[in-house]
Design a protein around this nucleic acid. Structure first.
Length: 122
DNA sequence: AAACTGACTAATA
DNA sequence: CTATTAGCCAGTT
């Protein structure tokens, strides 16, 4: 048995799928294992350019156990963005390492190697 | 209802 | 390379 009591701050799906954030989640779900994309890239792919920040807020609102692979979203410099919850940060790094993504000495991911390229060519 | 708060980014110095 | 700044915008107080 588990999670018997949902907190009142759980994101409420249904009733409103036009909530903008759903578009971001849909794109993030398309990032394959072992690849990463930037917040700005997600925004562009979701056809809502310049809303990189919203992407970050959308991911922050995800409940644990979500099917959205949030760990595959990093900042434009190929680094993990610092956030209030330091544990999330190390978890993200751990999850990425587990899928084969590597970090250089300064903690940066080589986007030429691991960056997600939707459509894969052009 | 106005202010505050962020998992961002590109440009500039 | 670091630091600062302006643009962005929805959810929470």
């Amino acid at each position: 048995m588990n999670e018997p009591v949902p907190t009142s701050s759980e994101p409420r799906a249904q009733t409103r799928s036009t909530s903008g954030w759903e578009r971001f989640y849909a794109v993030v779900r398309h990032i394959p294992r072992g690849r990463v994309a930037s917040y700005g890239q997600i925004a562009r792919e979701a056809r809502v350019p310049r809303q990189a920040r919203q992407v970050g807020y959308a991911l922050a609102a995800l409940a644990p156990g979500t099917d959205v692979p949030w760990q595959r979203v990093v900042n434009a410099r190929g680094r993990l963005s610092p956030r209030r919850d330091a544990e999330r940060y190390s978890l993200q790094r751990q999850l990425l390492l587990a899928e084969g993504v590597t970090f250089d000495a300064s903690g940066r991911i080589d986007l030429d190697r691991f960056g997600w390229r939707p459509r894969q060519h052009r």
